[in-house]
């Protein structure tokens, strides 16, 4: 990583923290209880990007 990239990354982290991201006190509670539209993949974690390896299923709202 170049110095500029390191600095950019640090700046970005600081910016996000100032915006309120990184310290969400209620983070866990707003996640709990919601209906998940995105489900865990069936064969995730191999590091490959091909469909068969990282199959991801999601459902949109039933209109």
């Amino acid at each position: 990583m170049t110095d500029k990239k390191t600095k950019d990354t640090a700046d970005r982290r600081n910016f996000l923290k100032l915006a309120g991201l990184g310290t969400l006190a209620g983070g866990a509670s707003i996640v709990a209880g919601g209906a998940e539209a995105v489900e865990a993949g069936t064969d995730a974690g191999t590091g490959y990007r091909e469909t068969d390896h990282v199959k991801k299923v999601y459902e949109t709202a039933r209109f």
């Binding site: 996000l16 923290k17 707003i30 209880g33 919601g34 209906a35 539209a37 995105v38």
Partner: peptide
């Protein structure tokens, strides 16, 4: 990183709020 974890949480939360109406349990939280 914690700020990225919060980003993921917020994306997921907003997504769920727009996928279907929240339950009373969600509202309590």
């Amino acid at each position: 990183a914690s700020e990225d974890a919060d980003r993921a949480i917020l994306y997921g939360f907003i997504g769920r709020m727009l996928q279907a109406a929240p339950s009373n349990e969600d509202l309590q939280a």
